[in-house]
Amino acid sequence: MDITNTPTPGALTKEDTIEELNDVTRLMIDSYKGYREAADESDDSWALKSEFNQRAEARSKHIASIQGYVRQLGGEPSTHGTMRGAVHRGWMNFANTFRDDEKGAVESVENGESFLAHRIEDCIEDGQLDTTGTQLLKTAYADVCSSAKFFDRLDDRLDG
């Protein structure tokens, strides 16, 4: 889907933008926590440990940018993930999943990133964001899509 042509906002309020940004922030926090847990649980010799740390750091920067903008708008930024994310982080049970089923774990990461990308895309397209909010989410969207593609390629390689 092409998100370069976003709808022209109508009678937007700051509250609309704050609500949308906070919704995405909660999901991004879930993603950040998942990457951080993945890195923490990964064996130091496992090649993806560095990848998880890099992805967590990038996600953290997007979260901070969005939270900062929500504060500029006079809102209270989300600082916690979602219950769904806590459940989804069950895929991050590395003691079992990553060590016993690398392919299943990679598919879980890919699915989580795809879900996040679609949610960001929906927020951008629904026209409830101001220009700055839209730009912040477009930047985050590019990062999330990059992660989803990386894990998709990795999944393909694991298929052999």
Rank of each mutant, 00 (worst) to 15 (best):
S147M: 11
T132Q: 10
A58I: 09
R84F: 12
A117G: 03
C123G: 04
V144I: 14
A140L: 06
T131L: 08
E51F: 12
M83F: 14
I29R: 04
D2I: 06
Q128Y: 08
K14V: 07
E102F: 11
R59N: 04
Q67Y: 06
N5T: 11
G74S: 02
R71C: 02
G160T: 13
A38R: 05
P7W: 07
R59L: 10
E41K: 14
G75N: 05
T13Y: 07
V144C: 02
H80V: 14
L116Y: 03
E110S: 06
L21V: 06
E76T: 14
D101T: 03
D101S: 06
R71T: 14
S31N: 13
D44R: 04
F150R: 12
I29P: 00
M28R: 10
K103R: 15
A148K: 15
T131M: 07
L27F: 05
K49W: 05
A47K: 11
R59D: 02
V70P: 03
S146V: 04
D43K: 13
S31E: 08
G90S: 12
E20H: 11
S147Q: 13
N93Q: 13
E57N: 09
R55Y: 11
I3R: 05
T8Y: 11
A148Q: 15
M28V: 05
D126R: 14
P77Y: 06
I120Q: 01
Y35F: 15
F115E: 09
G112L: 08
G104M: 06
G34I: 02
D122E: 13
T134M: 03
Q72W: 06
P77W: 07
T8N: 09
K14M: 06
R71D: 02
E20Q: 15
S31C: 09
I120P: 00
N96R: 12
T131E: 09
D155H: 15
R36E: 11
A148Y: 10
G81I: 05
G127F: 07
A105E: 08
F150E: 12
Q135Y: 09
R59Q: 13
D122Q: 13
Y32G: 05
Q135R: 11
S45Q: 11
V87L: 14
T139Y: 02
V106K: 08
E125C: 08
L12W: 08
N22W: 07
C123Q: 13
G90F: 12
T6V: 15
L21P: 05
R55P: 01
H62N: 09
I66F: 02
